[in-house]
């Protein structure tokens, strides 16, 4: 979305300062090219028109941070852990044991590289987004849906590899379903599977995007009450400031939580695909 400035629905420069500021905020949080006012109209899949956006710029930085963090961590790996090696190990151990193995049992360790990649990608993007002026690479549907689709493709591929294409499709219909219900059950399962990447994408995107809108709104309250000081400002300013602090802390929590949810759902989907024929 490329929101015009000021925000849609408010014509021209007649907007009041609050509406204008919020319009500016949503505009800044929309996907924008690094250079220029808005993304070129037309086919965004056209490689010739490729440009980094305000989100993918920070996303690439987050990916580099993950890479550097783990390469350093791997180099420092020693029997008696310390420093960054210790931190990297703690992360690896958490994802491997508390996500992969807890959900899938011992065979879950096999899928750790995939789920670990997702977890640390999402985590680092979410966390980096909390450091102004960075935006979370996960705060745009382009990222979250792409990763949702990657998860969708991977877990279905695993299910097909494990059960065979036919066996996997058959597993969509629970055994014991009456004949007339089978097409409906099958359709229902197809819909439920198709919705998985969508829900993965929307959940992560909405959490990160909404968090930044909230932070922005309270920052605007602070700025505007300072700028146009009135009696109301005496109440709004301290409250907004406190909310700003509280939300920052909450956003850190959400950053970790969403990374955990995205990866544990991936583990659950892979586990379901592995044991599809048992249902």
């Amino acid at each position: 979305m490329t929101a015009p400035v000021p925000v849609a629905g408010v014509e021209g420069a007649a907007a009041d300062p609050l509406t204008a500021a919020i319009g500016k905020l949503t505009h800044e949080l929309s996907v924008l090219p690094l250079q220029g006012e808005k993304l070129a109209a037309g086919d965004s899949f056209n490689l010739a028109a490729f440009t980094l956006t305000n989100y993918t710029f920070w996303l690439i930085l987050a990916v580099l941070l993950v890479a550097v963090f783990f390469i350093l961590g791997a180099r420092r790996a020693s029997l008696v852990p310390k420093g960054i090696g210790n931190l990297a190990e703690a992360g690896v151990e958490f994802v491997r044991n508390s996500i992969c193995i807890d959900v899938m049992g011992p065979e879950g360790a096999k899928y750790f590289p995939f789920i670990g990649t997702i977890f640390f990608f999402v985590l680092f993007n979410n966390l980096l987004g909390n450091v102004p002026p960075a935006l979370p690479g996960t705060g745009t549907v382009g990222t979250t849906f792409t990763w949702g689709i990657i998860v969708f493709l991977v877990y279905n591929a695993i299910g097909i590899k494990k059960n065979g294409a036919l066996g996997y499709l058959k597993s969509f219909i629970p055994s014991g379903t009456p004949g007339w219900l089978k097409p409906f059950m099958f359709l229902l399962e197809i819909i439920s599977h198709t919705l998985r990447p969508v829900t993965l994408g929307v959940r992560l995107f909405a959490n990160m995007y909404a968090g930044h809108i909230m932070l922005g709104v309270f920052a605007i309250f602070c700025a505007l009450t300072l700028e146009h000081f009135t009696a109301v400002g005496l109440i709004v300013l301290p409250l907004s400031f406190v909310m700003q602090v509280v939300l920052r802390a909450f956003e850190l929590f959400v950053a970790v939580l969403q990374a955990y949810i995205f990866s544990i759902l991936t583990a659950v989907y892979i586990n379901g695909a592995l044991h599809a024929s048992e249902h």
Partner: peptide
């Protein structure tokens, strides 16, 4: 709802490289 191509490409490459 539909990922923008410019973001899709970056994410696919990011996933591939990182993985």
């Amino acid at each position: 709802i539909i990922p923008l191509g410019v973001e899709l490409y970056v994410n696919l490459v990011a996933f591939a490289v990182l993985f």
